[in-house]
Computed example of a mutant assay.
Amino acid sequence: MTDVNPIKRWTAKRKASVVMDIFKSKTTAAEVARQYDLTVSEIEGWVDEAQRSMENGFRARPKDVREQYESELRETKEALGEAHLQIYALKKFRRLLDEDESS
């Protein structure tokens, strides 16, 4: 009989604790999945996410999530502004052509 420990909310701290136990070979993803009635793929997803985060932490200049988001948002706004200017210019050019043709 399996001892299932239902946890209603998996906080980042709880996930990190489980992942650290897996990294230290204290347990396996399969054992954790059985113990907490989760799927192995969920646990492996946590492990993958932790590995990506660690890789970012080891970089010479790690970017935090907020910095990455702000950078992507800034680039998106710039692209949107450029697209808006192109549309405005094309509409103006079209009006000028229409006026020229009707003259």
Rank of each mutant, 00 (worst) to 15 (best):
L97F: 12
F23A: 10
R74A: 08
M1G: 09
E49M: 08
E67S: 11
E55Q: 13
R59F: 06
K26I: 06
G57V: 07
A29N: 09
Q86K: 13
L97T: 14
F93A: 15
Y88K: 15
D100R: 11
K8I: 01
K8H: 02
P62E: 11
D100V: 13
T11A: 00
A79S: 03
H84V: 05
R66P: 00
M20Y: 03
L73N: 07
E82H: 05
E42C: 08
P62W: 14
H84F: 06
S17T: 06
K8P: 00
A89S: 15
E70P: 00
N5D: 00
S41I: 07
K24V: 06
L96G: 04
R59C: 04
K13H: 03
K26G: 01
R34S: 13
Y88L: 13
K77Y: 12
Q86M: 05
L38T: 10
K91Y: 11
I87H: 09
V32L: 05
S102G: 04
D48A: 12
S71R: 08
E49Q: 12
S103D: 12
P6K: 06
S17V: 04
Q35Y: 11
D21T: 03
E99F: 09
T2D: 07
W10T: 02
E70V: 12
A30P: 01
K15L: 01
T27P: 00
K77H: 08
E75Y: 03
A12L: 02
T76Y: 02
F23V: 07
Y88I: 11
K13L: 02
E78N: 01
I7H: 02
R95T: 07
I7M: 01
A83N: 10
N56G: 10
H84P: 00
A29T: 13
V65P: 00
R9L: 01
F93W: 15
V47Y: 12
A60N: 02
R66L: 11
T11H: 00
D98T: 08
K15T: 04
R34G: 11
Q35C: 07
K13I: 03
M54C: 06
K15G: 01
D98Y: 09
Q86G: 01
